[in-house]
Write a protein that binds this DNA or RNA. Structure first.
Lengths: 190, 190
DNA sequence: CTCCCAACCGAACGATCGTTAGTATGAGCC
DNA sequence: GGCTCATACTAACGATCGTTCGGTTGGGAG
């Protein structure tokens, strides 16, 4: 692993723990075991490290969606999307934490780009629910906006309670079952 | 409104927008229209302002739960709890934003107390779902932990998309309907 | 052996941070 | 008029911030 990657990883760890503004370049240098001035051989500035983290995060989350076969039923794609999202969060908890919490400290231009990327992700999720309704898998009066919002709430909040090593597939399936079948009725009638 | 309350409100606004570490005492003083040294006639330190915000937040959220009659069916209490939570978020968006995002910057002792308060809130929600299951309103195989987690995810994520003035009761009911009846089956069979 | 080059050091920069101290103003009360 | 008290000002404090820069180091390539 290159020194630059070391740096980015340690930065993500500290940003997740103390926040972007709560993490000083000096503290980061200490964590690496180097004088703070030395960091500038690898980065242009502190913003670089935040941006790098966000870029990796966006890639990871979109990548998880990309791995889902287009041909599957919409409900199955929803289940796999939830699995994928939770897996990314658990596998790269610090990355996910920064991704959800610290994006607003990107400088203006980069923040705009980030928000656009996130919108695109949300739209991909919303599309799954619309698809499920239109193809008769989900109830015909389903509001895809509310459904997607509930999905994304569960997904985006996961960094607060998920721990590395958790069985994210089982957790995702539990969430999925609740979303699809509800808390009142009995599970999937045959 | 007292000067101190002005200060707390403006601090919450800035903390919500820029984060605790991203908001300087100087910027806060500017927003009030006063020299930064003058603030110390009203506060002991910057931490005070954060703590004050958290205290108000905890009070608001617990207060919303307190207003729910104990005698109602569990499912109805769940619906009202969701209504209450979203109403607090929409009515005091900046307060809620700081409450969810900035609590980790409290100093150690206060943070511990905050986390305990939040745990208590989560436990109150979990209890509602357990009650619903035990009294036969909700399915007998319901995992109250997963159910409460889904509820709290929707509730805690709301600050990111809710806007002041929204019809939070309608939104809460839409969430509630989805949670209880699911996305697949048709709504409440008669 | 020499040269290169990435990595790092050590010191310093100006800016900004949260906080303190001493003083001034002005309204309300006796 | 004298007194208190909340409010605010000005100036400065030491600490820390992100960043810059000239010099040093050490291992690999030629």
């Amino acid at each position: 692993m290159s020194r630059r990657e070391d740096l980015a990883r340690e930065a993500a760890r500290l940003f997740a723990e103390k926040g972007y503004h709560g993490t000083s370049i000096g503290a980061l240098a200490d964590a690496i075991g180097v004088q703070k001035g030395s960091l500038y051989a690898h980065i242009e500035g502190k913003q670089d490290l935040l941006y790098e983290t966000m870029r990796q995060g966006a890639e990871a989350f979109h990548g998880a969606l990309d791995g889902i076969p287009e041909a599957l039923p919409a409900t199955e794609k929803i289940r796999l999307a939830l699995r994928g999202h939770l897996r990314v969060v658990a596998d790269q908890l610090e990355l996910a934490t920064v991704f959800v919490q610290e994006w607003r400290y990107l400088d203006d231009e980069r923040r705009d780009r980030f928000v656009a990327e996130r919108r695109r992700y949300e739209e991909r999720i919303r599309t799954l629910f619309r698809e499920g309704r239109e193809q008769g898998e989900l109830r015909s009066d389903l509001d895809e906006n509310v459904a997607a919002l509930l999905f994304l709430s569960a997904a985006n909040w996961a960094f607060t309670w998920l721990r590395a090593g958790a069985d994210t597939d089982a957790l995702a399936d539990a969430f999925y079952a609740l979303l699809v079948d509800g808390m009142r009725g009995y599970s999937t009638p045959a």
